[in-house]
């Protein structure tokens, strides 16, 4: 009797187990299926434009709904440049802040500052956009950009980045606002990553007579490197897809690609948001859907590149792991 009961209960728990396994298996495929459906739908709607323009869609930068010439090069350029600019500005700042919070800050300061940073990450992007529009862009136009033009603009080659009229609505301002927006994301993840470095790593290093800086340099950072790069990738992902805030400060103009960061630009996400509602012609609509496919592709490429980078950097010495 008791053996039977035991057997039964074991049997049913085994059944329950496999049922559970099967259900979570199907759940795991939901995101995969959604992605495939999404790509299929985008592909279907984008096909007329892709078929008609082919490679030209990616290599030319005329976007003319009236005469039906569609080329996305300027938008791809704007997306990549502003996102990378944001990443390059934000990452060192974020890691510096995270290091201070995780390794230097007194206990009573850590909580409030970390809390504030996490709140920053939760601010809706339109608020950053409005601030960028009313505060940052005028400041860039009147003070920062003329200063950059006078100082860095005189240097050969590098100076090309800081030439032309300073309007304040341009790639540089967009990159800056993106940097501000992804800063909290990278900071708070980096802080967690640095905190998760085992104490015996640090203690061992300090035990060897290292200074605090040497401890960070030789024990903490190498151990945390993959996690830090991961944090930067998440920041990049946010920057790539950011729409509203960028739209408000980038100038929304696709007329040309120049090396100057003072050129008004356009990003893929901004074009889609701006022009989708009034895309009344079939081919125009299709071209806009094709843009979203391109955006997906650009994020994919940048993500893969970042992952390769992670793989490369994690191959080296990592400090002593447990």
């Amino acid at each position: 009797m008791s053996a039977e009961l035991l057997g039964q209960s074991r049997g049913s728990s085994h059944q329950g187990d496999s049922l559970f396994e099967r259900s979570i298996l199907s759940l795991a495929f939901v995101p995969v299926g959604l992605l495939l459906l999404l790509v299929a739908l985008l592909w279907y709607d984008a096909w007329p434009a892709l078929a008609r323009y082919g490679v030209r869609f990616f290599t030319t930068n005329t976007w003319d709904p009236v005469f039906e010439n569609f080329g996305a090069a300027a938008f791809i350029y704007g997306t990549v440049i502003t996102s990378l600019l944001g990443l390059v500005i934000a990452t060192p700042l974020a890691i510096g802040a995270a290091l201070f919070l995780a390794a230097y800050a007194p206990e009573w300061l850590q909580g409030p500052v970390a809390f504030t940073i996490e709140l920053l990450a939760a601010i809706p992007s339109i608020i950053y956009g409005l601030w960028g529009f009313f505060v940052l862009a005028p400041l860039m136009r009147s003070t920062v950009e003329p200063f950059l033009k006078e100082t860095l603009g005189a240097i050969p080659i590098l100076g090309a980045l800081f030439s032309g009229p300073t309007i304040g609505k341009d790639l540089l301002t967009a990159g800056l606002i993106l940097a501000i927006m992804i800063l909290p994301t990278i900071t708070s993840i980096s802080r967690e990553v640095i905190r998760s470095v085992p104490d015996n790593q640090r203690e061992g290093m300090l035990g060897l007579g290292a200074t605090r800086f040497e401890m960070i340099r030789y024990a903490v950072l190498p151990y945390a490197r993959p996690g830090l790069i991961g944090a930067a990738i998440l920041g990049l992902a946010r920057a790539l897809g950011e729409t509203m805030a960028v739209t408000m400060v980038i100038g929304n103009s696709s007329t040309r690609i120049t090396p100057s960061l003072f050129t008004p630009g356009y990003t893929l996400a901004s074009v889609i948001a701006n022009q989708f509602t009034e895309a009344d012609k079939e081919i125009y609509f299709s071209a806009i859907v094709a843009l979203s496919l391109v955006l997906l592709l650009v994020s994919l490429v940048l993500n893969v590149m970042a992952r390769v980078l992670v793989a490369r950097t994690t191959r080296g010495p990592l400090g002593v792991r447990n």
Partner: peptide
């Protein structure tokens, strides 16, 4: 919407 020769949007 048109292909603007100049300007900010």
């Amino acid at each position: 919407s048109v292909n603007w020769p100049v300007g900010l949007g």
